[in-house]
Design a protein around this nucleic acid. Structure first.
Length: 217
DNA sequence: CTAGTCAACGCGGTAT
DNA sequence: ATACCGCGTTGACTAG
């Protein structure tokens, strides 16, 4: 079986065991020489039984024990103890990201590997983000609901006004008759583009500035 | 049996 | 080159 110290020095030999591929990737924390020899099914069954008997008592996490399990069975579920979680949570409240020294210090204090502390912070940030997304989603859902209500209310109001005033042409048609108002692209003020002479006075009230010497004004 | 949780992994991207 | 991060995924474990 692989000894972690051997692994850390860059020399390790595994027999039918799990070697994290990440460690063979660019972010090498350790360099493990994977000389995996497939086990006989009977051997595997024995190891599995061994893991189950040890794994069932995983809860108060004993790093030595779990890493032993990891080595025998491959990836094994680690449950952080309450103290470990509390300390990690506390430091997360202060800083949601890690620097190298903090990581080392936490790892030492919690009797975990620095990589485990790093992974915990990554997962914790992901959980925070997910929660925030859920909150945002709820907020937008409520916004959407209230806007739909408002839209329904306004439509209803419009229908009522139309039914009360069928003989009168709608206000927007009256306005169109009076003048066509457009927005000047250069000064962003309303300017008169058409209409009859009778409505000139109304338009004067809208354009109160001296138009700039631009093609649009 | 199934859905949910969470530690751990793999990979691509970025900063230094 | 190295360290770190986000994101998607995997797999062990658990509660219902």
């Amino acid at each position: 079986m692989v000894d972690e110290e051997l692994c850390n020095t860059g020399l390790a030999l595994s027999i039918g065991q799990f070697v994290p591929k990440r460690d063979q990737h660019k972010n090498k924390h350790v360099v493990c020489l994977d000389l995996t020899i497939p086990l006989h099914p009977k051997q595997e069954a024995n190891i599995d039984a061994e893991c189950r008997s040890e794994g069932s008592s995983l809860k108060p996490v004993d790093e030595g024990q779990t890493s032993k399990n990891n080595k025998i069975c491959g990836r094994k579920k680690l449950r952080l103890s309450k103290e470990q979680s509390t300390l990690l949570e506390d430091s997360f409240k202060i800083h949601s990201t890690l620097n190298t020294s903090l990581k080392q210090a936490l790892a030492k204090k919690l009797n975990l590997r620095p990589r485990q502390v790093e992974v915990w912070f990554q997962n914790r940030r992901a959980r925070t983000k997910l929660k925030q997304t859920e909150v945002d989603y709820e907020f937008l859902k409520n916004c959407c609901a209230s806007l739909s209500d408002e839209n329904r209310r306004l439509k209803k109001e419009l229908d009522e006004l139309r039914s009360l005033n069928v003989e009168q042409p709608p206000l927007y048609i009256q306005l169109q008759k009076a003048a066509t108002l457009t927005m000047c692209p250069s000064c962003e003020n309303v300017v008169k583009a058409g209409g009859d002479g009778a409505s000139d006075a109304a338009v004067k009230d809208v354009v109160l500035h001296e138009p700039k010497k631009t093609p649009s004004c």
